[in-house]
């Protein structure tokens, strides 16, 4: 809780503005039925998140959020909408049941945050476990000044290998499910 060291324990005014915009975007997302507008708002959501990550000093995450969330997925989802149509189908179910589940889950999550350490708390378990060793020895052991890269590619190399295997599988699966049909149709002609 030592703020003199320069640790940020509270949200600043820009953070609160960004979080408010995030909330407004989310509510608008839930209410919209036009899928193209939904995709645009999802891009906006990612952009707001990216700015928030920068504000939290998580530059690498912000970079990924901006490139993937606001950039590539927007285009991929637009391509998907071109295949499935622009309008969401009207709902026919009673919204009360799902609403009850969502409210209960939300209440449980908010209740759980009361037990979490404060934002940026240096005494939090997440900051006490292996993080100090990575910060102190990482640059010397790996020769890489960017700690995020050192952790991702070296200390957590197995995890990253698993991650790109997931992306590999996703690419192959989309090619098999959607890409193959085109070739078959061309063969018919």
């Amino acid at each position: 809780m030592d703020q003199a060291k320069g640790q940020r324990l509270i949200l600043t005014a820009p953070d609160i503005v960004l979080l408010t915009l995030l909330l407004v975007t989310t509510i608008a997302l839930a209410r919209l039925r036009n899928l193209v507008a939904v995709i645009m708002l999802l891009g906006l959501y990612s952009l707001l998140m990216a700015v928030l990550w920068v504000s939290f000093d998580a530059v690498d995450v912000a970079f990924t959020e901006a490139a993937v969330g606001a950039g590539v997925t927007t285009i991929l989802m637009l391509a998907a909408v071109a295949l499935i149509g622009r309008e969401e189908k009207p709902h026919r179910h009673n919204p009360l049941g799902p609403l009850l589940i969502v409210v209960a889950t939300g209440a449980a999550l908010i209740y759980a945050t009361a037990e979490m350490p404060r934002f940026g708390d240096p005494d939090a378990p997440a900051q006490q476990h292996v993080a100090p060793r990575y910060i102190e020895d990482g640059p010397r052991e790996t020769g890489v000044p960017n700690m995020v890269t050192a952790v991702l590619a070296s200390y957590r190399g197995y995890d990253t290998l698993g991650e790109i295997t997931v992306i590999f599988t996703a690419g192959i699966a989309v090619m098999l499910l959607i890409g193959a049909r085109r070739r078959k149709r061309e063969g018919d002609q």
Binding site: I75, L76, A79, A80, A82, L83, A170, G171, V174, M175, L177, I178, G179, R181, R182
Partner: peptide, 10 residues
Amino acid sequence: AIFLSFTGRQ
């Protein structure tokens, strides 16, 4: 690959 698959179907 995903982009080409999605756009290739039309």
